[in-house]
């Protein structure tokens, strides 16, 4: 096995330069999620405009998978309608990562997804 197959180039790149990383001034909703088995946390911020996700950002202290997954998700979700995003499934997220994960690591990959879905639900019910 070579070093390159360990984590794909794409994931590595997202981890090294996470897109949309950082806190947000005046978000419409802020959600914090924790994965109790490893203590990963993510705080996720969204701004909504005309039913679309106008802006998303997050700060995360987590493993490569969780940070890269948040980064990829943030790129995919920006600009889409909340309705559309809400139809995304967990397996869509895992597919986007292009990496076969064991059950423990799947939780890492999905922590940002859980946070985003919670944020949308909270926005819709407010």
């Amino acid at each position: 096995m070579t070093d390159d197959t360990i984590y794909s180039q794409i994931l590595d790149d997202h981890y090294r330069e996470p897109r949309n990383f950082g806190r947000m001034e005046d978000p419409d909703v802020q959600v914090t999620e924790t994965n109790p088995t490893c203590g990963d946390t993510i705080s996720l911020f969204i701004k909504v405009k005309d039913g679309n996700l106008a802006e998303i950002s997050y700060v995360a202290s987590g493993c490569l998978i969780s940070v890269a997954s948040a980064s990829i998700l943030s790129e995919k979700a920006t600009g889409s309608s909340l309705k559309e995003i809400r139809t995304m499934t967990k397996s869509d997220v895992l597919k986007n990562l292009g990496l076969k994960l064991g059950p423990a690591r799947e939780k890492c990959a999905l922590i940002s997804y859980d946070a985003l879905m919670k944020a949308i639900d909270r926005y819709n019910s407010s």
Binding site: I6, R16, E17, P18, F21, C38, L64, I65
Partner: peptide
Amino acid sequence: KPFGNYVHPHDISHLADRIRGVEIRSGH
């Protein structure tokens, strides 16, 4: 920032396995 100063224990465990076959635990 996540990158550059810290390796999450999950990544240590994952990489140790993939790089050298060393199987160690990560978490609390």
